[in-house]
Design a protein around this nucleic acid. Structure first.
Lengths: 189, 189
DNA sequence: ACTATTCTATATCAACGCTATGGAATGGCC
DNA sequence: GGCCATTCCATAGCGTTGATATAGAATAGT
């Protein structure tokens, strides 16, 4: 129903399924609980999709691929993405989100170990910077403030700048970004 | 009511004001129209606050001040901020948002003209990168995913990295960031 | 002073999330 | 196998929501 842009209400949800409205309460504790479960599933699937991206010997490319898969997920399911980051819902289980972030931190660490990024940077902080840049772009897209075509080049140029500032060679970074971004976009649908 | 975390409904809104529910429809065309007007006012005030920051001879510091004012605005009125970027509402008038972004672009241009940032960078793209990083942080905060204390050091370190990648000297950038951020936080409440 | 127009208070509507309640399954125990 | 305790769901209904139809009051123009 989210994908079809249909209004998700308790009654429209159960109509046609054969079950009654009470099932939502016994299994999810209400409408917000159900939406929270959908959100949790969204986090879980996003995490699976990101960790499923095969790790290559180019960790910077893997970083770009993760960012592209993140963006592609928001593009294909904008309503789900908006739901996942809706603050009016009960707080999600942090496990899935933490796992996803940890994957990003590990990839940054691999890039540092391979000599692409300076060994002095804070891998956790740098990973969060990448995340926040991508997340801001996705939120502007799902909110309708910018089209995906508008945010995409900004994200890529911003990522390129951050890779460069973290020590990567500009040309190598650009090559890795192009390869990784295309790879992540394809796997993110 | 947003600031007091009260539920904003058509009836609770007009209760105590002496007017009836119909006034909302004659003046705003309904509940979504009213919320859209509130959002527009939020954009307008944010734009005023950003442009009211006095331009110093340190354009990089001014960039940081704008970012801090943006973040402080989200911290002081998280519900208004969430409302401003709620995609389920009718599209806002782009004028206020465009004006705010243009102010950021102009400040980037000043930093380039003063020799702090390389003259080869795309001022519009770079301004949007700064915006998306800050916006992503603010959205994670208002959504309850991260506390303000968690996102603040990430934003500042990310901005520092972007300034550096755009050509600024790391030490100068750090000094400007510290000064500008403190200035913007004070003016953003 | 009369008419035409605009605005609003009242009453009402369909739909919403949610809950009380009774009947239908299900599982364990002698 | 027969009985009881428990779990679970369909029905009906509650209060509230956003939105509307209508009629009466206020305003403006000639």
């Amino acid at each position: 129903m989210l994908a079809r842009r249909e209004a998700v209400s308790l009654r429209t949800l159960v109509s046609g399924t054969g079950v009654s409205t009470m099932a939502v309460y016994t299994y999810f504790g209400g409408m917000s609980g159900l939406l929270g479960a959908v959100r949790q599933e969204g986090f879980s699937r996003l995490g699976s999709r990101l960790t499923a991206l095969s790790a290559t010997d180019d960790a910077v490319s893997d970083l770009a691929a993760a960012g592209a898969a993140y963006a592609a997920s928001a593009r294909c399911n904008p309503d789900l993405y908006a739901l996942m980051f809706d603050g009016s819902l009960p707080l999600p289980d942090r496990h899935a989100a933490d796992t996803t972030l940890q994957h990003l931190v590990d990839t940054v660490q691999r890039a540092m170990d391979s000599g692409r990024l300076e060994p002095t940077i804070d891998a956790g902080a740098f990973a969060k910077e990448l995340w926040m840049l991508g997340h801001g772009a996705c939120m502007l897209f799902v909110a309708g403030v910018q089209t995906f075509e508008q945010v995409e080049p900004i994200v890529t140029s911003g990522l390129l700048r951050l890779y460069h500032a973290a020590g990567d060679d500009p040309e190598e970074a650009s090559r890795s970004l192009n390869h990784g971004w295309a790879r992540g976009l394809g796997a993110g649908g």
